[in-house]
Structure formats: structure tokens, C-alpha cells
């Protein structure tokens, strides 16, 4: 009995340790970035653009603008496709009265699963080959956000699907019984009820775009100027960290930019958790 208790305590000690170490790693990485980065941050850091040359004076204004543009344009491309796919997979697959429809659902599902596993550098390579070169869009926000959309479509699909599945079946049955057809039911009953869940998916996707570097490294060009059209190149905050760390020796600026990025991700995560908790509370 003692031996059993002993191994129980040993094992549980290890599990506690694993949990604590995980938290400590997070605290160390985030803490290090914040401690090194925050002192360099002032209001000017947000309101001035980086200067050229190797000194890398200046702030991150233009990279914030580019990041914002990238989020908006990418979501414009990805959201309709992602939400549409999720609706098809959840709302239209239940009544697979014929074999063709069933086949379609499993083909579509295969596509979504495969897309979710593609590594981002492949999206970059693809974006470079198709949008930048073959379609002649050059290094631009348009090229980069088309490639970036491929990355987040699966994220939107998955979260939207979960949100749609969480809507009680009774809502649909009620609406259908009242004579509404499937689209009307989806549009007027199911989607409004799932809106919160879908919005977490969109937030999550925005986070992915903020964090992504590899795709934009090969499709966005890296100009640090404020973009003024879809055809302008640009530099997101994450890309700016890469350029600062690799091209210049401005590690302090890199740390400050990284601190802003991490803070942004923390805020987004908090927002997602708040929305999710509200859904759970309902």
C-alpha cells in the first residue's frame, strides 16, 4: 500500500511539475519580452514610422497600419468562404437524402482537413508563384492577403462549425415546421444564434494574421512605408520584428515591437475567452 501511495505521489508530483513548468515557460518568454521591450515604448513609438537606413530610428506606426490592412483584407476574402463552407458542412449535410450530396460533403471535408495541415511557407511559396509572379500582382497587400486567406479559412471553418453545432436542433426544427426553408432557417435563426461563436473564429483568425511571418516574408515585400492601396507592399509588425532582428542590430526596437505584438495577442486571447465564457454561461 505504501509503495502504491509512493508511486502515486511521485507521478502526481511530476504532473504538477509539468503544469507549473508550462506556465513558467509562458511567464518567462512573455516576461522577458516585456521587460526588455516595454522601456523602449512611448507614445512616439506608436505614432512615428520607422526611418530608413541601418539605424532604424523611429517607431512602428506604418507597420501597425499595414497589419490592420492585412487583417481587414484577408478577412474580407476568407470570412465568406469559411462561413459558407461551415454552413454547408453542418446545415446541409444532415439531410443527405441522396448519395451525391453525401459524396460532396466528404469531398469538401477532405479539402478542409488537408488545407488545415498545409504549412505556412507552402502558402507563401504558392502565393509567390501564383499571385506575385504569375498574376503579376507583385509584392503587395493583395498578394499577401490572398495567400494569408488560405491560412485562416480552415480556422474560420472549424470555429464556425462548432458555433453552428452548438445551436440547439429545436431552433431549426421549429423554424422548418413553421414553413421556412433551409436557407431561411439558417439565415434568420441559426446564424444569429451562432454569431458570438463565429466572432471568436474571426478574432482567432485576426490573431493568426498578426502572428504570421513566413507567408508575408515572401509575398509582402517588406517596404516600411504606409501603404496607400491594395497594390502597395508593406511590413506587418511581425515582419518588422524579423527585419529589425536580422537586418539591423536594433534588438531593443525588435524587443519593443515584439512586446507590442505579445500585448496585442494577450488582449485578443482575453477577448476570445470573454466571448466564449459568455456563450458557456448562456
Amino acid at each position: 500500500m505504501n509503495k502504491r501511495n509512493f508511486s502515486q505521489n511521485m507521478a502526481f508530483g511530476m504532473f504538477w511539475l509539468a503544469g507549473i513548468v508550462s506556465v513558467l515557460i509562458m511567464a518567462f518568454v512573455v516576461g522577458y519580452i516585456m521587460v526588455k521591450g516595454l522601456p523602449g515604448i512611448s507614445l512616439d513609438f506608436f505614432t512615428t514610422s520607422p526611418r530608413g537606413g541601418l539605424s532604424c530610428d523611429g517607431g512602428i506606426y506604418s507597420t501597425i497600419v499595414t497589419t490592420f490592412y492585412m487583417i481587414v483584407v484577408t478577412l474580407v476574402f476568407a470570412t465568406p468562404l469559411g462561413v459558407g463552407t461551415a454552413i454547408y458542412l453542418t446545415e446541409y449535410s444532415s439531410n443527405t437524402d441522396n448519395r451525391v450530396a453525401g459524396r460532396m460533403v466528404s469531398i469538401a471535408r477532405f479539402g478542409v482537413d488537408t488545407l488545415a495541415g498545409v504549412p505556412s511557407i507552402i502558402f507563401g511559396l504558392f502565393g509567390y508563384a501564383l499571385f506575385v509572379t504569375a498574376m503579376n500582382l507583385g509584392f503587395s497587400i493583395l498578394s499577401a492577403s490572398l495567400a494569408g486567406a488560405c491560412l485562416i479559412i480552415p480556422v474560420i471553418i472549424r470555429t464556425t462549425e462548432e458555433a453552428l453545432k452548438a445551436v440547439p436542433a429545436g431552433y431549426r426544427e421549429g423554424s422548418l415546421a413553421l414553413g421556412a426553408n433551409r436557407w431561411e432557417t439558417t439565415w434568420k435563426v441559426v446564424l444569429p444564434a451562432a454569431l458570438r461563436g463565429i466572432s471568436t473564429g474571426i478574432l482567432l483568425s485576426a490573431g493568426r494574421i498578426v502572428s504570421e511571418t513566413a507567408i508575408f516574408f515572401v509575398t509582402l515585400g517588406g517596404s516600411y512605408r504606409v501603404p496607400h492601396s491594395l497594390m502597395s507592399g508593406g511590413r506587418t509588425m511581425a515582419l518588422h520584428v524579423y527585419y529589425l532582428a536580422m537586418e539591423t542590430r536594433a534588438f531593443d526596437k525588435a524587443m519593443s515591437t515584439a512586446a507590442v505584438l505579445v500585448a496585442l495577442i494577450i488582449i485578443m486571447n482575453l477577448a476570445i475567452n470573454m466571448v466564449t465564457n459568455k456563450i458557456a454561461a448562456k
Binding site: P80, L81, G84, T85, I87, Y88, L89, Y92, M104, V105, I107, A108, F110, G111, V112, T114, L115, V118, I122, F123, L125, F126, A129, L130, A134, C150, I153, P154, I157, N181, R182, W183, E184
Partner: peptide, 28 residues
């Protein structure tokens, strides 16, 4: 008509992921 159109539109968007995967594979 709307129901039918939407069903097609949704099916097309559902197949978009597969299309992207195929495009990626073809281009690479």
C-alpha cells in the same frame, strides 16, 4: 429559387478549400 441558389453558392464555397489545395499542389 433563393434556397436553390444559396445551396449552390454554399456548395461552391465548401469546395473552395479543395480547390485551393489542388491549386497549391498544381502550382508547386
Amino acid at each position: 429559387g433563393l434556397e436553390k441558389t444559396m445551396k449552390t453558392v454554399l456548395l461552391v464555397s465548401a469546395l473552395a478549400s479543395l480547390l485551393i489545395v489542388l491549386l497549391i499542389f498544381i502550382f508547386t
